[in-house]
């Protein structure tokens, strides 16, 4: 809408020093509270004056949320760790390069310098109808404008839609799903741990949220098990411009190859659905197989079997199929 907003409305600002204090504040303010991490998504909403929190809880001083730690069975990344830190961390580079590949291709150096790994996962969709303040389902309204036959929906979803056809914008999510990461969520009733692929909300369940986080909860830590350390990885992001742009599609895979056979694998894409999707059908096709062009193509075809293109995103079908092929090819056809 042409109402030019631009100036951030006033809010109360808190800078707690512990996650517990932050959670307490978030519970106090409920829906009117807002978590500020790197801010790369937050500022947009505020400046557009579409979201107007009463209170902002800035996590900059919560030291426990920063940093990357090696643990007995893998590696832990604090939620507030910047994408640059993730992309350049030696242990991640050495053993979990699918994640560093993903992180290093996000947006721009400046955004990676301030944007956090949690922020990249939690960020809201970029559907321009929704971001434009249209009263769509995701905004609490009763329409999906983006799926209309006349709509401009080149960037939208081909799979997993339910009323809403927006896509998840996170580039790091498929990499973390491929690594079988777990996310630690802290709330007033303690911690819960969820698998990466279960962290993202399906629009069929709650159309207004991108993740399972509830008000008053924080994503505190990302745990990457050592299961896939040093596996054969593939990551590719297809976007319009090589900086800034959100992915048209990303693919991430981790494969354990033994004797020329794919013993086990995990594969995920984003940019195809309202949430990052794990490609279990493709995995089934590939598990126990020798990587080849044919099997790669089959894995790709299987993944797009149920895809339903909108008017302008039909290209995402061959794109997704081809990216899966390339991931298989990346395993050394």
């Amino acid at each position: 809408m042409a109402v030019i907003r631009d100036m951030i409305p006033a809010f109360e600002l808190f800078q707690p020093t512990s996650a517990d204090d932050a959670i307490e504040l978030l519970i106090r303010y409920g829906e009117d509270g807002w978590v500020l991490g790197g801010g790369m998504d937050s500022f947009d909403w505020w400046k557009e004056r579409i979201k107007r929190p009463t209170a902002v809880v800035d996590l900059v001083n919560v030291d426990e949320l920063h940093g990357i730690r090696t643990t007995a069975d893998g590696i832990e990344i604090g939620a507030m760790t910047t994408l640059t830190e993730v992309a350049t961390h030696p242990e991640l580079l050495a053993n979990y390069s699918v994640l560093t590949d993903a992180a290093s291709q996000i947006a721009t150096p400046q955004i990676r310098n301030r944007g956090t790994i949690a922020g990249n996962l939690i960020q809201d969709t970029r559907c321009w109808y929704y971001r434009g303040g249209w009263p769509c389902y995701r905004a609490g309204g009763n329409t999906c404008y983006a799926s209309a036959p006349t709509a401009m929906n080149r960037e939208h979803a081909i799979l997993g839609t339910s009323r809403c056809v927006a896509v998840s914008p996170s580039d790091s999510a498929p990499a973390l799903i491929a690594l079988d990461a777990q996310f630690v969520i802290k709330g007033s009733r303690g911690e819960r741990v969820v698998d990466a692929e279960d962290f993202f909300m399906r629009p069929s369940v709650d159309i207004e949220r991108m993740t399972i986080l509830k008000p008053g909860e924080l994503l505190t830590t990302i745990r990457i098990p050592s299961t896939w350390a040093g596996a054969t990885f593939y990551y590719e992001k297809i976007e319009d411009r090589k900086a800034w742009d959100f992915a048209l599609m990303t693919v991430a895979s981790a494969m354990r190859i033994n004797g020329g056979v794919i013993e086990d694998l995990r594969m995920a894409v984003n940019g195809a659905a309202p949430f990052p999707i794990r490609l279990e059908d493709s995995e089934r096709v590939l598990r126990g197989q020798t990587p080849s062009e044919e099997i790669g193509l089959r894995a790709g075809e299987v993944a797009i079997r149920d895809a339903q293109p909108l008017r302008h995103n039909d290209f995402k079908l061959p794109l997704m199929r081809n990216l899966i092929r390339r991931a298989v090819r990346g395993a050394g056809v």
Partner: peptide, 8 residues
């Protein structure tokens, strides 16, 4: 529940 339509 009310909302502004795309034309405000």
């Amino acid at each position: 529940r009310r909302a502004a339509n795309p034309w405000g």
